[in-house]
Amino acid sequence: MSSCTIPIANTRSVTGIRTAKLATWWIIGSEIVIFGGLLVSYLLLRLHNLDWAHDAAHTNTWAGAFNTFVLLTSSYFVVLAHQAAEERNGAQAYRYLWYTIGGGLVFMLVKAYEYGTKIHHGITLSSGVFWSFYYTATGLHGCHVLAGMIIMAFVAHAAKKGENLHRVECIGIYWHFVDVVWIFLFPLLYIAK
C-alpha cells in the first residue's frame, strides 16, 4: 500500500459483505450489461440472417471446446487458491494462482492459433458481419482474460507474502465470470451452425 493510508470508510461493512468483494460484484454487474449488449445484438442479427450459418460452419469447434476445458480447469485452480487463502496459506494460494495464469496463457495461445489460421485463410474482422461479431466478442473476452491474468499476477505476488489475501477471492470471482462469459460464447459462436 504505497501512498495512501486505508480510509476508515474501507474498513466498514454495513452490509456484512466485505467492501472489495461487493465492488467486484458490482463490476461484474456492469460487465454483464456490456457483454449482454454485444451478445443481444449478435443474437438478434444472427436469428434474422439465417445464412450466417454458412460462415459459422468455419469456426473451429474443437479449439473452442478445448478452450472451454482450459478455462473450466483454471476456474477450478482459482477456487482452490481461494480456499488456500481462506486457510491463510499464502504460498499455496500463490501456486494455484499461477496455475490459473498458466491456464489463461494456454487459452490465449489457442486463441492466437485460431485467429492466425482464420486470417491466413483470408477471414478477417471485415469479412462479413458474422466474422465481425466473432472477432469482437472473442476479442473483448480475450482482453478480459488478459486483464485478469495481469491483475492475478499482482495478487499472487502479494499473496506469497501473505498480504491482502482477501483479494484472491475477488480476482477469483472475476475469473469465474470471464469463464461464464466463455461458457455462453462457446455455443453461440462455435456450436450453433
Partner: peptide, 12 residues
C-alpha cells in the same frame, strides 16, 4: 444485483 442486470438484457 446480477438478476437485475440479466433481466435488463432480456428486456432489451
Amino acid at each position: 444485483i446480477l438478476l437485475i442486470c440479466l433481466t435488463l438484457m432480456f428486456l432489451f
